[in-house]
């Protein structure tokens, strides 16, 4: 009997509508207006790679040990180095990073012994060409420069 009345008075319908109504409060809007307001990503976010520079003397931190290239499952890092005859040390010459194949797993970052390679919080990586995804040393040191959105 109760079931009958529940059916004709559409109790289930109003119950559901009441839930929808409770969620109507405009204070609880979750949508992010992305290009206008930039979301804050987590501190550990694994985004665009960066080759860190020693802030004191402007030289790269990378010691060209090639460990990141060996750690990468996708084999997308190529480290070029040259032996400096004066200091008898290897020095970095080129560094290419094929971002189009990167899956941002962070293994290269973990492998780097001097924290030179780092995945940063930059996430705006779009490019018009495939070649634009292959980053060289300069690009890695400076980071991407996305055109800001103007409202």
């Amino acid at each position: 009997m109760g079931k009958f009345f529940r059916t004709i008075f559409l109790v289930d319908l109003f119950q559901g509508l009441w839930v929808t109504f409770r969620n109507q409060n405009p204070k609880n809007i979750y949508t992010e207006q992305y290009p206008a307001e930039r979301p804050k990503v987590a501190e550990r976010y694994r985004g665009a790679p960066r080759l860190n520079i020693n802030p004191d003397n402007g030289e790269t931190l990378c010691i060209a040990c090639n460990l990141c290239a060996l750690a990468c499952p996708e084999n997308l890092i190529v480290v070029g180095s040259e032996r400096n005859e004066q200091t008898r040390r290897k020095e970095l010459t080129t560094f290419t990073y094929d971002l189009s194949r990167c899956m941002f797993c962070g293994l290269c970052e973990d492998a780097c012994p001097v924290d030179a390679l780092e995945l940063t919080q930059d996430f705006e990586l779009a490019s018009y060409t495939r070649e634009g995804w292959i980053w060289d040393r300069q690009m890695l040191e400076e980071g991407p420069k996305p055109t800001p959105y103007k409202c």
Partner: peptide, 23 residues
């Protein structure tokens, strides 16, 4: 994302334990 830096394909665990300490 806060824990390991990725939202979907997390790669959160490593063989033998964890890579990241809890934040």
């Amino acid at each position: 994302e806060n824990y390991c830096g990725a939202r979907l394909t997390t790669h959160a665990f490593r063989v033998g334990g964890l890579q990241y300490e809890l934040y």
